[in-house]
Design a binder for these strands. Sequence first.
DNA 1: ACACTAACCTGCAAGC
DNA 2: TGCTTGCAGGTTAGTG
Length: 268
Amino acid sequence: MPELPEVETTKNGLKKLLLNKKILKVEIRNPNLRWRVDDSIIFKLQSQTIQSFSRRGKYILFNLDRGHLMIHLGMSGNINVTDCPTSLEKHDHFLLYFNDRMMRLNDPRRFGSIFFLEDLNHKLLNSLGVEPLSEDFHSNYLYINSRKKSRNIKSFIMDGKVVVGVGNIYACESLHKSGINPKTKACNISRERYQNLSKQIQNVLRKAIKAGGTTLQDFAKVDGNPGYFSQELSVYGRENESCYKCNGKIRRIIQNQRSTFYCPICQK
DNA sequence: ACACTAACCTGCAAGC
DNA sequence: TGCTTGCAGGTTAGTG
């Protein structure tokens, strides 16, 4: 269920429930995720205490006594913390047991991933772009990095090597709020429009993280499914409905193998 | 260096 | 009712 706000919410929930907990047992029920989970992770994690949690892009980092557990939720991943014992569900692939509770990674499509890192110098982390809510994502960042980029603006802002955490929903939403047509070439967008776009990206993410906070209460529940769709979305999933801004008809097109929702009237 | 595709999976809803 | 099709919140490796 994860775009950046979901991951941030998940990370904060884990912090609440698992900080300073000692991992007593590790169980891999299905190692075939995006990358096969190596059995050696079991003894590497065992007996370690979780010192802190952090997030980089859509990766959740469990910072341990020695090394880090890094988890990505892919398209359909979800982490639950429950009392122990709990009846397991289909697609519960990876389990951590603590003295009085357990953590389950459930991921039907198995696009998620799990790694043990000795340190944070890892290929997948090193290739990530800036955090959208950090100072590095300043008003000129997108403008500067988009010069000579002929690809469309939507794929540009969804590129994790440019800026992390902007998934399909928030790419559509922030482009709509900025009044930018998603088909526009990244190099053809002015500095002024990029300043607006970066602000809209931050706004939409901050707002969603705040909304994710309400999800937090459900976090420990067995049936706790994040209420992601409670967002009020302006264009995403609203094909053929009317635009809140201009009453135009919202269209769905395919860009880079993904659905794009936009309003052809007010996104130019 | 850049742009774009195929690929990794399951589940669900819609259409026939 | 069952079958087929299309679609889903991500991201990498590979190709040209």
